[in-house]
């Protein structure tokens, strides 16, 4: 037993370290790992590498020129700004919807529950046409809003509205299972300790949901920043005003400016990556505190 516990004695090897390969019930570790790495490389890393390699034919200056054009900058700002704003609103509304679906039993609950997924399932172009029709100057909502002097279609507001619809299911579906699993005794404990409903929600429930809310936020934001199909019709695409970054890429491609298109793509990739790292950092910090 002693010899087993201290391999240094038995085999003269280094002190025991946590093995990087945990024993598994399924054989075929080498093959599985190889395939995983190959697949991830082929599907994810290779295209990204190609994108990162593409724009440099006119040197660093060429890349910077392509990105720093006012029209490109405005488009990037719109795409990421609207996505950020929409993600924030979606976190609030998604939490509300998940709460209602999880905590109340009402007729038609399952239908509403299914409807939440519709933006997932709908082809984005279909959603885009629907939104453009609804919010256009002659649409039901658009006409009513126009009378009040508010213009949604063909403005940055239109982009924001489209991203609200696109991002919502990400938040709802991230929060819902966590909310359903939330131990009822936590709320009961808070109650018996004298907390009022607002305190119970703010101090007990919300912190427990925070990791799921952040996940939902990150997903909604990432999806919104790159969204094309559902935005393109309602945005109107006025350069510098309501033109989104993905459209700038498409426009460049149509002009055979592959390096320019790749430059804008690279900028989007970099911003998304930064956002991802930031979200991860927040989540790591939170799990270090509470954790499971």
């Amino acid at each position: 037993m002693v010899a087993l516990a201290t391999p240094r004695v038995a085999g003269g090897v280094a002190p025991r370290r946590r093995p990087w390969r945990e024993p598994s019930v399924l054989p075929g570790f080498a093959g599985a790992l190889g395939f995983t790495l190959l697949y991830v490389g082929l599907i994810i890393l290779l295209p990204l590498a190609a994108l990162a390699a593409r724009p440099w034919e006119h040197g660093l200056q060429g890349v910077l020129d392509a990105i720093l054009k006012p029209r490109t900058l405005a488009a990037l700002r719109l795409s990421f700004g609207a996505a950020l704003l929409a993600a924030f609103v979606n976190v609030a509304m998604g939490l509300l919807i998940a709460w209602v679906l999880g905590r109340y039993r009402f007729p038609g609950r399952r239908i509403v529950d299914a409807l939440v997924d519709l933006p997932f399932a709908l082809p984005t172009a279909v959603a885009g046409i629907a939104l453009a029709t609804l919010y256009g100057p002659n649409g039901w909502i658009g006409a009513a809003l126009a009378r009040g002097g508010v213009k949604v279609a063909f403005t940055p507001t239109g982009v924001f509205v489209a991203l609200l619809a696109v991002g919502l299911p990400f938040v709802v579906r991230a929060v819902q299972p966590v909310l359903d699993d939330l131990d009822a005794s936590l709320e009961e404990a808070a109650q018996t300790l004298g907390a009022n409903p607002v305190q119970t929600f703010a101090r007990v429930i919300l912190p427990a949901l925070a990791p799921a809310l952040i996940t939902g936020f990150a997903l909604a934001f990432a999806r919104g920043a790159g969204e094309y199909g559902s935005v393109i019709f309602i945005a109107g695409n006025m350069p510098g005003v309501s033109e989104i970054a993905p459209l700038v890429i498409v426009t460049r491609l149509e002009q055979y400016d592959y390096a320019g298109a790749a430059s804008v793509g690279l900028a989007m990739l970099a911003i998304s990556l930064l956002a991802l790292v930031a979200v991860n950092a927040v989540q790591v910090a939170m799990s270090r505190r509470g954790g499971r």
Binding site: D183, S185, L186, E188, A189, A190, Q191, T192, L193, G194, A195, N196, R203, V204, P207, A208, A210, M286, R289, G290, G291, R292
Partner: peptide, 21 residues
């Protein structure tokens, strides 16, 4: 009285501790 007005201490089988505190 409501639960929060009764001033009782309740201990649960699964502790029901607030994990983030």
């Amino acid at each position: 009285l409501s639960a929060r007005e009764r001033r009782i201490g309740l201990v649960f089988q699964q502790y029901a501790l607030f994990r983030h505190m």
